[in-house]
Amino acid sequence: MENKGIVKKIEGKNLYIELFRDSSCAHCSGCGKSDKTVTDLYHYELNEDIKVNLGDLITFEINNKFILNLALLIYVSPVVLMVLSYIIAAKLGASEGQGIIVCFSTLIISFLGFYLFDKKTGSKMIKEEISIKEVIPSDEIKITSCGPKD
Rank of each mutant, 00 (worst) to 15 (best):
A94P: 04
L19E: 07
M82V: 00
T59C: 00
T121G: 10
D150I: 03
A90L: 07
I130G: 00
L70Q: 12
L92W: 06
V52Y: 03
F111G: 13
V76G: 04
N64K: 09
C28R: 11
A90Q: 02
H43Q: 12
V38M: 11
S85P: 03
I6W: 09
S77P: 02
F20C: 10
E128C: 02
P78L: 04
T37W: 10
F111T: 00
K13L: 02
E61F: 02
A71N: 08
G113L: 13
I109Y: 01
I109W: 04
E11K: 14
I136R: 08
C31D: 06
P148G: 05
Y86V: 00
V7H: 09
I136A: 01
D35C: 08
L112K: 06
V76F: 03
T144K: 10
Y115S: 15
N53H: 06
G55H: 12
N47G: 08
N53K: 11
A26T: 05
D22L: 09
G93W: 01
K124P: 02
C25E: 14
K133C: 04
K9V: 15
E48G: 02
I67V: 15
I109D: 03
Q98W: 12
I130D: 05
P137M: 00
M125C: 14
G12C: 03
I132P: 07
V79D: 09
I108T: 12
Y75F: 03
L107S: 13
K4V: 09
Y16R: 08
E11Y: 10
P78G: 03
F117K: 03
K51Q: 08
M125T: 14
K120P: 13
Y86H: 00
P78V: 01
S110P: 15
F114C: 13
L116Y: 13
R21N: 14
K133F: 01
D56K: 00
F20N: 12
A94S: 12
I132K: 06
G32V: 10
K8N: 13
K33V: 11
G30H: 07
D35E: 12
I132V: 04
I17G: 01
N69P: 05
T106R: 04
N69Y: 13
L19M: 13
I74S: 00
K142E: 08
I136K: 09
L92Q: 00
D139V: 08
F104W: 07
E11Q: 11
S24M: 15
A90Y: 05
E128R: 13
I6T: 14
T144E: 11
C146V: 05
C103D: 06
I62F: 02
A90P: 02
E2I: 08
Y44W: 07
I100N: 07
K149A: 11
D150W: 09
L92Y: 04
P78W: 00
E140Y: 06
S77L: 15
P78N: 01
K133Q: 01
